[in-house]
Write a protein that binds this DNA or RNA. Structure first.
Length: 860
RNA sequence: GGGCGCUUAGCUCAGUGGGAGAGCGCUUCCUUGACACGGAAGAGGUCGUUGGUUCAAUCCCAACAGUGCCCACCA
């Protein structure tokens, strides 16, 4: 006896365990079969599942399952990212609670602790993935700091260095004073901030001339080495080349001319602090200015500045210096100002531009092939417009700062001799050999820095396949067919995978990049902890089951939309949908003839009108869902699935089988259609479809390896579809009569039907509209002559309203047809269709008139 | 400052150059041989505004107004 309500909690864990132990998620490279490979974007080991994973990872699971059912050699390759700065930040916080510090512990102890942490908490997100029903090839799980992947990192670093593409140099970098590390440009975010624009007067020695500069960061003024104006600015032309005294520091700085200065901004004069501002840095380089550092790695004031400021936090220094300037009479005014502040995407700390000796990767030569691959169509983006984003970024690419001052990560394969000569090698032994050979020493000290976490993830699609070894996996599964990710990491990750993949694995890493929408809450706000609007997928699973959670999320995905406002009501509806499907099985089981033993369509001659209709509709659904999945239209697929199963299969077909005449074919057809349907739905809702599939006759052990339904194998009958549609309209009309005329459901109404009406149609009218047929009132063929009998006064009202409506339609149509130029300029088929419609309205109008006339006669 | 989206029923969203759709919510009716996580019938939109193209615009184009995202060195 099947339970009345489908209970996801009762089946999901059991089915997942079955899949995992039977190995359906696992594949081996097979040159004879068409591969379908997706590399999972590695979630951070600090990660917790959130709805973003729902929208990005569910499509990967759907596509992998779909292509597996298509018979392809499908595999989804999982793995995790060590997430250097993010993980280290979590650890440092945890250690702080124990009164420990990173530096106090020392590198080895800290790293040991980090590995412990990874062992203990690193897989939490995988547990959520299992609950969601995701089926990656767990046996192939990888971690960016696995020995193999780390070896790949070293190999790439050394190769790039030997080619001169990696170099060490002092540059102005994005510094995170909290994480005490550099960040790449892509890891910097800009936040709106309410700041103050301070206007400060810099005067000449004799105080005869002065310039007012505007700044949001007065604390950096101690590092000023010039005042810059635009070369064409008449106001300041005669000042260029003179010197001004830097307030509070009593140091002289030149006035210079540089085209980078905006004349319209502020006073048109800008203080130049080359060591703490990117624009100023470039001006400084052009004019060969000194670049004194006045803020240190902790964000504290430092350097050759008045002693009172040394050691002061940069934020405190801002207030102190502003007030000192005021006392000195140099502060002209302060005004509220709204600007954007650079913030670390890792720690949230305000970025401090800092001059620093770091390692960089030259990007231009790497970017060229990556651009070509996009331009010649080797790599395509879905939706297309994201390709232009990718293109523009690569066209304006800048060198990549790859070194980080955190410990958790891949330590640079760089050693220094006592003289400070750098030795870059894949191993310490190799480094010693080179050092001996080139510098006559083996006393080496390793660079303490680690690599940007995106350096290792940039190698992901080939490092997880065993590169640099020429493994079978690498040969058959590279490039991948699809990469699915969100648009915020097109630069950080996608572009780098393409550049590094083309350089080192010899080919593009994937053919198609599918960009999923960002998830917002139901009011369009970004989900964030501080807003308290974060939705935990596990809570949704708890409430609705994994299938409904997936279905609800995916149903809202539309290709061209870049935003997904999550609406929990869809998950609820999806749960009810699953229950509805479940009850379809119960219906079949409840039939006297029971569930058929095999999947077998009845002979064609036996098929009823309703059978032909539902099979034709199934065929169309197979075509639509297949096309939708091929086109990444997951929302469209979900909509089609739900409307077919609920409205066509359950509400119409299933109800139509409740006549004695249908008894011959109903069980086989119901079963056949439902079996095909759950296969169509399985990629999106794996659990409930498996449960239903197993409850019906089937071949094989699991629906996960069942074949995808083929439209061509399903019978189609256009005539039956047309007749049945007409019947549906008649039935709806009859029901509307009933509701409108307040006829009790138990009370039968009467249809006048042509005496030659197909008896099956008579049955269906009876069953679906609770109506008696009254044959003999022979009118024109088909269903057109079916009319409903009801109390006359009410009928007359109804017909009169119908008359008005139809008259309007006729008038509208006539007007359109007689509009100037319509008949001449509109396409012939459009005109013909309009004429047909008009004829139809006229016929219906005539019928209503006739009915009204008869009513009048009988009421007289 | 550039670039890219979005604006359709109370809510969340589909959709199409030729008579406005779904789900939820709401109203009324119904426990009819699976399902009340159900069935039936309804009410509810001048498709953001203004122009333009067209025989015809919710759909194409332009401007404007909201709104969101990405990029960028406006101190």
């Amino acid at each position: 006896m099947l339970a009345k309500t489908y209970d996801p909690a009762a089946v999901e864990q059991r089915l997942y365990a079955q899949w995992e132990t039977s190995g359906v998620f696992h594949a081996e490279p097979d040159p004879a079969r068409r591969p379908f490979i997706i590399s999972m974007p590695p979630p951070n080991i600090t990660g917790r599942a959130h709805l973003g994973h729902g929208s990005t990872y569910t499509p990967m699971d759907i596509l992998t399952r779909y292509h597996r059912m298509l018979g392809e050699n499908a595999d989804w390759l999982p793995g995790q990212d060590h997430a250097a700065i993010a993980t280290e930040a979590v650890l440092v916080r945890e250690l702080a609670r124990e009164g420990l510090t990173r530096d106090g512990m020392g590198r080895d102890a800290f790293l040991a602790r980090a590995w412990e942490w990874r062992e203990e908490y690193g897989d939490i997100i995988y547990e959520a993935f299992r609950r969601l029903g995701f089926g990656p090839d767990w046996a192939r799980d990888r971690f960016t700091m696995d020995p193999g992947l780390s070896a790949a990192v070293n190999k790439v670093f050394v190769a790039l260095y030997n080619e001169g593409l990696i170099y060490r140099g002092t540059r102005l970098v994005n510094w995170d004073p909290k994480a005490r590390s550099t960040l790449s440009d892509a890891e910097v975010e800009y936040e709106d901030a309410d700041s103050t624009l301070w206007h400060i007067r810099y005067a000449s020695d004799d105080r005869k001339r002065s310039v007012v500069v505007a700044t949001t960061r007065p604390e950096t003024m101690l590092g000023d080495t010039a005042v810059a104006v635009h070369p064409d600015d008449e106001r300041y032309r005669d000042l260029v080349g003179t010197e001004l005294v830097l307030p509070l520091a009593s140091r002289k700085i030149p006035v210079i001319a540089d085209a980078a200065v905006e004349r319209e901004f502020g006073t048109g004069a800008v203080k130049v602090t080359p060591a703490h501002d990117f624009l100023d840095y470039e001006i400084g380089l052009r004019h060969d200015l000194p670049m004194p550092t006045v803020i240190d790695v902790e964000g504290k004031m430092t350097g050759d500045i008045p002693a009172k400021y040394i050691g002061m936090d940069r934020n405190d220094a801002r207030r102190a210096i502003a007030s000192d300037l005021e006392v000195a009479g140099a502060l002209v005014k302060r005004e509220p100002y709204r600007n954007k502040v650079a913030v670390s995407s890792r720690s949230g700390e305000v970025i401090e531009p800092l001059l620093s000796l770091q390692w960089f990767c030259r990007m231009e030569t790497l970017a060229k092939p990556a651009l070509d691959a996009y331009r010649d169509g080797s790599i395509r983006f879905v939706p297309e417009r994201f390709g232009r984003t990718y293109e523009q970024w690569l066209e304006n690419i800048r060198d990549w700062n790859v070194s980080r001052q955190v410990w958790w990560g891949h330590q640079l394969p760089v050693w220094y001799t006592p003289n400070g000569d750098a030795v870059v090698a894949e191993s310490e032994d190799e480094a010693r050999r080179i050092a001996q050979e080139r510098h006559g020493t083996t006393a080496l000290e390793r660079d303490p820095d680690t690599l940007d976490t995106w350096f290792s993830s940039g190698l992901w699609p080939f490092s997880i396949l065993g590169w640099p070894q020429k493994t079978r996996e690498l040969q058959h599964w590279y490039p991948n067919q699809v990469m699915i990710t969100s648009r915020e990491i097109i630069f950080l990750w996608v572009a780098r995978m393409v550049m590094l993949g083309m350089k080192f694995a010899g080919d593009i890493p994937f053919e198609t990049v599918f960009i999923t929408p960002l998830v917002f809450d139901e009011h369009g706000r970004k989900m964030s902890k501080s807003l308290g609007n974060v939705v935990d997928p596990l809570d949704l699973i708890e409430a609705y089951g994994a299938d409904a959670t997936r279905f609800g999320i995916v149903q809202q995905m539309r290709l061209e939309s870049q935003e997904l406002r999550f609406d929990e009501r869809l998950c609820k509806k999806a749960r009810e949908f699953n229950n509805k499907l479940w009850n379809a099985v119960r219906y079949i089981a409840s039939l006297p003839e029971g569930v058929p033993a095999a999947l077998q369509l009845p002979a064609d001659a036996q098929l009823t009108l309703a059978d032909r209709w539902i099979l034709s509709r199934l065929r169309l659904t197979v075509e639509d869902v297949t096309a939708a999945l091929d086109g990444f239209e997951f929302g469209v697929a979900a909509d089609r699935l739900m409307s077919f199963a609920w409205y066509e299969y359950c509400d119409w077909y299933l109800e139509a089988t409740k006549t004695p005449r249908a008894a011959v074919t109903r069980a086989p057809i119901l079963t056949y259609v439902l079996n095909a349907f759950v296969r169509l739905m399985h990629p999106i809702a794996p659990f409930v479809t498996e449960e239903i599939w197993q409850a019906l006759p089937h071949e094989g052990a699991t629906i996960a390896t069942a074949t995808w339904p083929q439209a061509a194998e399903i019978p189609r009958d256009a005539g039956a579809v047309e007749t049945f549609s007409e019947l549906m309209k008649k039935i709806e009309e009859a029901r509307a009569f009933r509701a409108e005329l307040k006829i009790a459901p138990s009370q039968k109404i009467t249809f006048d039907v042509p005496s030659d009406l197909n008896p099956e149609l008579v049955d269906l009218l009876k069953q679906l509209a609770n109506a008696e047929a009254h044959p003999g009132a022979a009118r024109a063929g088909g269903l057109a002559g079916v009319t409903v009998e009801a109390p006359e006064a009410l009928l007359r009202d109804r017909y009169e309203r119908e008359f008005v409506k139809l008259s309007d339609e006729v008038a509208r149509s006539e007007k359109k047809l007689s509009a100037p130029n319509f008949a001449d300029k509109a396409p012939a088929d459009v005109v013909a269709r309009e004429r047909e419609k008009l004829e139809q309205y006229r016929r219906e109008l005539a019928r209503v008139e006739e009915a009204l006339a008869e009513l009048a006669k009988s009421m007289r």
